[in-house]
Every structure is written in C-alpha cells, then in structure tokens.
Write a protein that binds this DNA or RNA. Structure first.
Lengths: 208, 208
DNA sequence: ACCTGAACACCGTTCAAGT
DNA sequence: ACCTGAACACCGTTCAAGT
C-alpha cells in the first residue's frame, strides 16, 4: 500500500520533531528510536528517512529548535529588569548564567542531545548552528564591552567564550551529578561565584 | 562446544578492557560493540556478559581505568617544578588545568566515554568513582587553601568545584569544536585566563 | 510520485544444549 | 562448571513493489 499524502513533507517534519520533543521532555533519547517515532506519528520508518535523509539529521533538526528556544529564553528578560540593568552589565551576565542553568535543568534531555549528538564522522557543525551560537556569544560580548570599554575585540571575544564554556561546564557536571550530591542548589551559587570573580579580575586587567 | 578455560574471568576482563582501550585510542565508542569486542578477544558475546554482567558495566570498568590514568597524569609533575612551585599554588593550579586539557586532547574517546556514559536509569555513581573524583578535587582544594588561608573549608570546596567544572567545560566544548574554529590552541589560553582571573578575585574576597 | 513493508546487516541479552 | 551459538526482540537503512 502507499499513497497517503495526508501531509506534506513539511508537515511530517513538524509532526516528527514535535513528537520527539514531547518524548525528550520526559525521557532520554536512548528510549526513543526512528521506528518508534515513525509509529507514533503513523508513518513507516522509510518515510522518515525519506523526509529527513537520516535519523541523525532528524536529531539535528531538533537541536536547531532547541538552540532557538535556548536563545529565546536567554534574551528574554522582564522589562523592568532590563531597565534596571541598563547600566549594570555584570548583573546582566549573572542573570544570563542563571538562565542558562535554568534552561539546562528544565530541558535536560533536549540539552543533552544538543551537546552530545555527534555528526557521523564528517566535519562541519552546520552553518545555521554556528550562527546561532555566535548570536549567543554576542550578547555576552556586549556586556563585557560595557564592563571594560578599553578591551579590544579579540580579548572580549575570548573572555566571552571562556565564561560561556565555564558556565556550560558547571551545568553539565551538575546535571549529571558528577560534581557532588546536592548539585541543584549549589550550581547556581557556583555560576554566580564564577562570573562575578572572573569578570571582576578580568575587567581590571584587560588591555590596560 | 564449550569448556575452554584458557583464561580466568579476571584475565578475560583484562583482555576485554585492554582491547576496548586500544579501540578508543583511535575511534569513538560508537564504532565498537559487545559482539565485535568478543570476537576480537576470541570469546562469544555471552561470555563477556557472564564476566561483566552487562555491556554497560564493561564500559564502567574502562571508565574506572580512565579516571585512574587521569589522576596519575594530574598528580605527576616534574620534580624540579614541584620544588619551584612549592610556594606558588597558583602556578600549580595553572599546570593542573593544562594537564587536564592535555589529557582530554590525547584521550578524547576515553574522555568522552567517561563523561557521557550514563547508567541505565538507576541512581548512584559507583562509590569508587566518586572517591576518585574527590581525590582530584582534593588537590585543587589544597592549592586554594594555600592561596587563601583565611577561607573556610566549605568556601574552598565550592571554589575547587567551580574551577574544576569550568576547566572541564572549556575542554568539553573545545574538543567538540563547539566554541569556535581554532580551538586547539586557544583552549589553553582560555583555561589560563579562567584560573588566573578567578583565583585572583576569589582570594581577595573569600571570607575576609 | 509517494509510501509501504519486507529484507538486510546489525545490536545487547538470554538460555538450552553441549563438553 | 564453563562456554557456545542459536534465538529473541530490537535497531537504522534500503529498495522493490504496490497504489
């Protein structure tokens, strides 16, 4: 049998991605499979391969959406606080770090997939992914530039990446309980300590 | 057929672990399987399950060994430098961070397995693993105590974990090229900047 | 043209049957 | 007692055959 045409390819993509996201809201990727996903949305495994090219690319599509919602959560700040923080870039960086942690905690399986999914063997983080990541860095760079206007672009860029990767490391080990027992509460304090101390010393020393 | 008894269970464990380590020196875990591993060492898949309990526990055994060699590389320092650094805990922390990065770069697939392997669903990082991790933290804590003798134990402990997780984050994103293009060289600089700035501000502020 | 479902080459695990 | 190898329930992917 064949010939259903109930949905366009685009609609099938949306169905599959949303179904997988729904699964990852509660369970890790390991409990899902291309076959199960196909069954969930009422198509055969072959159709999903047709539409996405491969299971790996389906996962990449979910990661694209995850990067977008991460980006949305990070840039979203209550209007009142934005006003307040206009002259307080350090506060903004601290809030940024906490938002990142919050996102990781609230979307742990999406987050795991985003950082642990490896492309088959080839190269190339896709362009759109690198661009989205660059956008996230950019916000950090803006805040750092305000903190240390005398610093040159390369220095700011490196500091932004350092802060970012550090916060990421705390979140990563904390979510996996690979740091200590009571990680949920302490991770926030560690990120605060990390950003506050790093920015303080960095701004006093950067390109003076 | 059956009844070989060419090796004791312990010998089979060693054979399997070494064979997997050899594989991970060049290729990611995904290219290996229990069945391939069994074939490599001349036994059936069932035997490996008998000896290790499951494929997962075999992987855990490799991780135990990885933690040991990581620990060995970190505590190993040239005698001359040890002398030199006796009064320079910051230098020791910097060297520690670089050693960590070096280990991750030189053993990327072992390192990936160590941090990405998840226990089936249950709880419990095994005791021996937590103890080994605690030992690694302890070295960092010792150096921090020298930097800020006035700080209390809890503060030092948190700072040690913060530094550790941060360095880990830089290594992790750097190895996956998820930070930027030229990661190999810059990761070292980022770790240096990270430790130097954090420790500087932290020591001035901790429990004064 | 689109989709299916059987087929292919795998996977970790179990366990009756051999020695 | 120890090990095997077939069997089981999966997996991602391919592709001839249907509509």
């Amino acid at each position: 049998m064949a010939r259903r045409k109930d949905h366009t390819h685009e609609q099938i993509q949306t169905l599959a991605i949303e179904s997988l996201q729904q699964h990852l809201a509660e369970q890790p990727l390991g409990n899902m499979s291309l076959r199960k996903l196909a069954q969930r949305i009422g198509y055969s495994p072959g159709t999903l391969i047709n539409v996405f090219g491969s299971y790996d690319q389906l996962l990449l599509s979910v990661n694209a959406a995850t990067l977008d919602s991460l980006s949305a959560q990070l840039t979203l700040q209550p209007a009142a606080e934005q006003q307040e923080n206009k002259q307080q870039p350090l506060q903004r960086l601290l809030a940024y770090g906490q938002s990142y942690l919050q996102f990781a905690e609230q979307n742990r399986y999406l987050w795991q997939l985003l950082f642990e999914h490896r492309l088959p063997e080839g190269e190339e983080v896709p362009d759109w992914q690198q661009q989205r990541i660059d956008g996230l860095f950019h916000t950090v760079e803006q805040a750092l530039t305000q903190v240390a206007p005398q610093a040159n672009a390369a220095t700011v860029q490196q500091a932004a990446r350092t802060i970012w990767a550090s916060v990421h490391g705390v979140c990563s080990l904390s979510l996996d309980d690979k740091l200590f027992a009571d990680s949920l509460t302490d991770a926030g304090a560690m990120i605060e300590s990390l950003i506050r101390n790093y920015v303080m010393a960095w701004s006093n020393q950067a390109d003076v």
